[in-house]
Simulated assay, not measured.
Amino acid sequence: MFSEAELLAVFRALSNPTRRQMLVWLKDPMGFPGQEPGDVEIGVCVTDIQQRVGLGQSTTSQYLAMLRQVGLVVATRRGKWTYYRRDEANIARLLETLRDVF
């Protein structure tokens, strides 16, 4: 169960429509151009997310870092590239907490 402080941090992260959209897009990693079926396990490269969202690299990375800090995405480093995928187990735990609280 998420604590009250954790819920507040999640709500803060999700208050931004672009961060919410990134989370929705990551639900379908194969929807990103150039994704290979084997890529799904590690996620989507931050460069591909950046191109889709149309923001600068720094802003995109900050948005993804915030989603990672609250446990909604997982980052995997491969060489100089960082890949992001949804943390489905933690998202399920969040939804369970919301059902219990509300």
Results as ranks from 00 to 15, higher is better:
residue 2 F to H: 05
residue 3 S to Y: 03
residue 7 L to V: 05
residue 8 L to H: 10
residue 8 L to I: 14
residue 10 V to S: 01
residue 14 L to G: 06
residue 16 N to P: 04
residue 21 Q to T: 11
residue 22 M to V: 13
residue 22 M to D: 01
residue 25 W to D: 13
residue 25 W to R: 07
residue 28 D to M: 09
residue 29 P to K: 00
residue 29 P to R: 03
residue 29 P to W: 02
residue 30 M to G: 01
residue 31 G to N: 13
residue 31 G to P: 04
residue 32 F to S: 02
residue 32 F to N: 08
residue 33 P to N: 06
residue 39 D to F: 07
residue 40 V to I: 13
residue 40 V to L: 10
residue 44 V to A: 06
residue 45 C to I: 15
residue 47 T to Y: 09
residue 52 R to W: 06
residue 54 G to Q: 01
residue 54 G to S: 04
residue 55 L to E: 14
residue 55 L to V: 12
residue 56 G to V: 02
residue 58 S to L: 13
residue 59 T to C: 02
residue 59 T to G: 02
residue 59 T to F: 05
residue 60 T to R: 03
residue 61 S to R: 11
residue 61 S to M: 10
residue 63 Y to M: 14
residue 63 Y to P: 02
residue 64 L to A: 01
residue 64 L to D: 07
residue 67 L to S: 00
residue 67 L to P: 01
residue 69 Q to P: 11
residue 71 G to M: 03
residue 71 G to Q: 03
residue 73 V to G: 06
residue 74 V to K: 11
residue 74 V to E: 15
residue 76 T to E: 15
residue 79 G to S: 10
residue 79 G to Y: 00
residue 79 G to M: 04
residue 79 G to Q: 03
residue 80 K to P: 05
residue 80 K to Y: 12
residue 81 W to D: 09
residue 85 R to P: 08
residue 89 A to M: 06
residue 92 A to E: 15
residue 93 R to Q: 09
residue 93 R to A: 15
residue 94 L to R: 00
residue 95 L to F: 09
residue 95 L to Q: 08
residue 97 T to D: 00
residue 98 L to M: 10
residue 98 L to H: 00
residue 98 L to W: 03
residue 99 R to P: 07
residue 100 D to M: 09
residue 102 F to I: 11
